[in-house]
Write a protein that binds this DNA or RNA. Sequence first.
DNA 1: GGGTAACCGAGACGGTACGTCTAGTCTTTAA
DNA 2: TTAAAGACTAGACGTACCGTCTCGGTTACCC
Lengths: 207, 207, 207, 207
Amino acid sequence: MSQAALQQNNAQTTPTMQARKGRPRSQKSKTAILKATNSLLLHMSVQELSIEAIAKKAKVGKTTIYRWWPNKTAVVMDALRAQPGIQSPLPTPKNNTEAIIMQLDKLIRMLDGNNGDTIAQLFSEAQADDKAQKIFARTFLTPLIDAVEFSIEQGKEHKEFRSSLNTKLAVDLLCGPIFFRLMSRPADLNEEFRETYPKEAVRLISA
Amino acid sequence: MSQAALQQNNAQTTPTMQARKGRPRSQKSKTAILKATNSLLLHMSVQELSIEAIAKKAKVGKTTIYRWWPNKTAVVMDALRAQPGIQSPLPTPKNNTEAIIMQLDKLIRMLDGNNGDTIAQLFSEAQADDKAQKIFARTFLTPLIDAVEFSIEQGKEHKEFRSSLNTKLAVDLLCGPIFFRLMSRPADLNEEFRETYPKEAVRLISA
Amino acid sequence: MSQAALQQNNAQTTPTMQARKGRPRSQKSKTAILKATNSLLLHMSVQELSIEAIAKKAKVGKTTIYRWWPNKTAVVMDALRAQPGIQSPLPTPKNNTEAIIMQLDKLIRMLDGNNGDTIAQLFSEAQADDKAQKIFARTFLTPLIDAVEFSIEQGKEHKEFRSSLNTKLAVDLLCGPIFFRLMSRPADLNEEFRETYPKEAVRLISA
Amino acid sequence: MSQAALQQNNAQTTPTMQARKGRPRSQKSKTAILKATNSLLLHMSVQELSIEAIAKKAKVGKTTIYRWWPNKTAVVMDALRAQPGIQSPLPTPKNNTEAIIMQLDKLIRMLDGNNGDTIAQLFSEAQADDKAQKIFARTFLTPLIDAVEFSIEQGKEHKEFRSSLNTKLAVDLLCGPIFFRLMSRPADLNEEFRETYPKEAVRLISA
DNA sequence: GGGTAACCGAGACGGTACGTCTAGTCTTTAA
DNA sequence: TTAAAGACTAGACGTACCGTCTCGGTTACCC
């Protein structure tokens, strides 16, 4: 049920769906929870963050959190997404090469700064906990990989890339270095990297 | 003190060092702890693994663990290293290109299978916990990066790679995809990948 | 308001009182609640019983219960009274001695079996909770004590008992042993006890 | 194990038993827990009392309480016993009639005042919870009943009481009224009652 | 027959306490 | 001195209920 709730949570709830039995979900509480989560993450890691602390800070019952999110990872993912300027849409690219460059640029932007730490920690949690893994994949990793894959496939059709290019390998080559740097030397995930890496990476797989 | 102890732990303790006052360290306990850790990691993640569980399984006091290792990450790293067939030395490569290929091949071998999960989880823990970060970096990541960096630098000197190659970026390009695949699609970290990736990756940065 | 409602609840609601505005109380819900309560009390103690469980079992909103009963004790008391064969009227006694015997006999009958446990548990709750205390006293204890007191007083007037008999003490002497046995050795509150105790007890206070 | 621990807890631990492995039980914590319990019981009922509150007040981990007592009832029983002046030994009676009078007098003294409420509440909890029942019986009820039974049996042998007297019934007659008054009209469990009841009760069963 | 009032179910809300678990420390005896 | 055993404080976990609230709906009455 939580899963269903989560779905509905993320989606734009249609007016007809809201006409349900029982007291409706408190939007105020939801906002308070996500806000408290983001606030706490400025001072501590995802692992250190506790549901109890969120509940206390948001002045909300623990139950309310557990009712709507299956675990900490899900709360944090939602909190990240709720941040302003995260889901800024990409401008229309003129070709697939540019599309990929824009996606990588956006990814690096997102991982630079405080959110980067949080996402690295979520990536971490996902390694250990199956439920966390699924949520992280569904809300973050899969969309990213799918988008890049799509651009590569399109690029192969449009002769921007050679048709012999292994799509999955290309995805790893494009995204892997970014995450590796994030997790091994986060300080080097800076502006310079953002300006040089995407072009360089695409150039390599085009070769 | 724990740091010192760890050092001593890893090095071959000279006979003179062992000739100290008091009851000597029980080799039996150390073995039991590492064995128990490896055994437990077959059924659970590093995050789920608890010091208490190790102590119980190894029939050892918790204090004994805390005396010799600063935290869980350190225990697990030691336990991994204690596994047979992990530190197989590399054969002498005929040039730096081959050296890198061999290092990547060894890395993929190590990450394939059960150990891969554990290392991914350690990589994870390192994101959240500073102490874990330091230990993971010192015992795993830095040696790897240093070795690859060294080979690249050497390769640049020997004209195997163009001198304009950004070494750090090259390291990310070589290692990043492997870890990205490990953490996002571990099933694809298979034999085929091991046979094709290293050569392909080196070819790319040579271009 | 709940208190007033409770009164009305117990009394025979006059037709004029029912002619109020608004939707009338659902008799169906009331019955379902009391039935569910009795049913649940067969498998659990009053303390274990929860309002939520009653509401769920009776397919009734929690609010409906809270609207009509101030607390769990009140619900359980009502549920007990709703059981068939509880409020069987006593036959007319030929004197006050016999009246007391009949009252004690009825009491023991009531306390023998499943209801005994429930009443003992109610007696218990009453020790801790003032509201419960008042309800238990009003609906169970006071009527009993008053009836016995009345018979004793009458008996004193009719020279059945010596006039120096302390009425309150006599009540304790007559009722106390029954409850003590109920709460300390409920198994001994059996048929034999029911047949022998009342006569013996009255004989003692007559002496 | 907790049961065993409890036993040892109550008994005078022999020196040989204390010579065990591991850190010995902290007497300081034990004292703090019992003291905190007594202190809290001045302001709240046993039912309202929570383990968490005790732990907080005593500045003790919850685990420490759960390690040594199986439940709240056990803690409260121990706390009661730890009060000064509870286990005052009886002076030697000159016969069994007097022995019973002294036992009843002691019982009333114990039940008069704050402890009376607590014991009534414990008696209550015992009605609902089997574990509580056993502990209450073992540490309070059974000793009392046994003592009175013993005196009655002795009194029958010494011709103080008629041999046809039903011992169990006599116990109920002697003790029941006291508890009935405690639970139904605790205010009447006063000094006057303490001075008159025991003699009167014994007189009755002697008749 | 529309308005109004009290009811109904469902279920979310802020809370409290539960009993369990683990962390990391401390205190003993035995080797 | 170290090992083992195990008790210590501290605090998060996820669950169960509490008593209150807020919905959409449902009867009844009253005008």
